[in-house]
Nucleic acid binder design. Structure first.
Lengths: 204, 204, 204, 204
DNA sequence: ACTTAACCGAGACGGTACGTCTGGTCTTTCG
DNA sequence: CGAAAGACCAGACGTACCGTCTCGGTTAAGT
């Protein structure tokens, strides 16, 4: 039998940086369009103008490709709005959420969250990506409002945020309606002031 | 050869009424577990203890199978709660929604709604199934409350309902948390009274 | 979760007998043309007018396909010639060998024998197939000739047979010449009477 | 068999001459082991301790590599034996043939001859390489014998030579037996004196 | 009871897509 | 400038799964 002979190493090489970008973008787009299940690496490669073996070389499995794609898509500057009043801040946040969910990245993330309950690693990735859009900002907004005394005592910050997010989620994916500025204002007003008539003595 | 006699009026029929039931139940279960994409008719047949050809005979395509499965699953008595007060009624509605979303049928429907934006016929089916749980009841509840003067003037009934539904949706599918009675009460209170402090006209 | 239900078994089924024949014939033909290495199951399937999955279903590996193909091709009636004289018998045998080697089956077998020294199972198969054409007949011929006193004392039967076979092998595959009746007669005469002039006293 | 290659630390610039030698040797070895079909340039390069691009630079295609490899392997001095008697000369020739066929070059050549009937250029190369071992010598031997009167009148020189070669070919590749001196002697005696009993007066 | 006809189970088959493997071309870097 | 190191493209292969087909067996009607 014959043994392999090792030579000294030569210069490494790093090309195709742009190629990686294109592939990841295409991946996010396909994730949004067809979801994780039907995401096909050969198809991604074809759409990216590359050969499928090139994609397989860099990302051995679909999960890793999606991981990188989500991470690349989530380079957000988490800049919380600061209008000086809770209402304005919440409207700003809601706009961010709506923009996210209506973009390809958001659709991709939400589809994974909805569909991949049984895939913990992937779900974790999506959760992280979803959290990117609101890791700190929203909580800061509510904390400031609480300090200013704008929030009812005992108000659950998470509940407020998730209710706004949930309403937009429902609007976008269930009703498939567009999220207009008017809708956002009404939503924020509802969450802030409630739908009930104001009473002098509220039983609670 | 004489002419043919009349056709034999033999008519053996409908051996598998129960078989149909089992298949549809399995279909809903798989829809909830893996979604529409990965729903496989051979798999459904196997889980139902039937042969795949038997399933293909009755439902030529996956879409029709899902249609029947959703329709069979949606035999709801749309009985709106009537506790006499808006808060109690909304809590009842929220419970219904939460129960639905956490059951197999609801998961199936929501997954289809989220994932099959590009499949109009299927989406329409899911919308109908989703509407079954609240075709009329919720609106009646709000109408009654408005008549009783419990609702703020100009309150958008749809916004109220969809916000509650969206919050539960977010809770179940994004946070993957359980919907406790306490959560529902807090949610309803948030939507009714808002998160902001009451202003001048309301003392406390 | 749904459990599987067991039914009672039904009747088996065996179809596609002609399909098997065609595939095996094509296999032998390709073996002769391109050899074992370049024998491709998808190609065989295509040439046989079948789908490659059908071929893979019946023959999990190329080795098994070739095994069946060789066995199917080797349904020989091993009828030794009997002309009453050794020369005529040998000519008959040589004709059989030449016919075999110039046919697809023979080419297939010889190519495997030449090329697959490292594949014992396959080599064994080819040896068997090659042996089919002369399992008993040739030895009977020589035994009869020896009994009749036509053979020199101490003549090695195997050497005689293999020399004739080897000469034809060389003719067909190395020289790539055709095996004419004249060639066969000259060959047999050479092996029987030798190329040397006859001496009165031959040592050894 | 292929031997390991060691990089010379003293040699700063591997003058391509040694490199070419190693590659060609490896090529012949692989030709003998796996044949032309499975001969892979990347594999040859790896076994030679070189990079595949280096091999591709020098030999654009497998055919040219094999051509050079065969030519390099065939630097034979075609020195015919001359023992003074036909029997001894033939034994010498047979030894040459047996040595050739059992060596790597011979195995390589014979495999190509057997397998590459459809590749004229390659076949031509192999024929030339095969002819190297006996371009003139064998014919000289027989011509001398004929002049000495050792050969039967009308004996076909080519038939004699090819029969000896064919018998050895069969022995080596079909029977996969070793070619012993005893075997060669018996073979030569068979071809010279024949297997039949000697008759008193043989016409012919 | 016997025939008849529909339904169901079983498996072969064609087809499509996937992921892997390997061969050959290219570019970049080093000596 | 030659050689090494990979990245890249291209194509074929074997596998998995789906949906269609044709069998044979069973069961439920109706004479």
């Amino acid at each position: 039998m014959v043994t392999r002979v090792r030579r000294k190493p030569a210069a490494p090489q790093t090309r195709g940086e742009a190629f990686v970008q294109v592939v990841l973008e295409v991946t996010v787009a396909r994730l949004a369009e067809v979801g994780f299940e039907r995401l096909s690496i050969p198809e991604v490669a074809s759409l990216a103008g590359a050969n499928k073996t090139s994609v397989y070389r860099r990302w051995p499995s679909k999960t890793e490709l999606v991981r990188d794609a989500l991470r690349a898509a989530m380079s957000h500057a988490d800049q919380p709005p600061d209008t000086g009043a809770l209402r304005g801040d919440l409207i700003g946040l809601a706009h961010s959420v709506a923009t996210f969910m209506q973009a390809a990245q958001g659709t991709a993330v939400m589809r994974i969250l909805m569909a991949q309950a049984g895939h913990p690693q992937l779900r974790q990735l999506a959760i992280e990506a979803y959290g990117e859009i609101g890791r700190h900002g929203p909580w800061v907004v509510l904390a400031r409002a609480a300090k200013r005394g704008e929030l009812r005592a005992g108000a659950d910050h998470a509940l407020v945020l998730f209710t706004v997010a949930g309403a937009i989620l429902h609007r976008v994916f269930v009703e498939q309606g567009s999220v207009t500025p008017d809708f956002i204002e009404q939503l924020v007003d509802l969450v802030l002031k409630g739908a009930a008539v104001e009473l002098k003595s509220s039983k609670r």
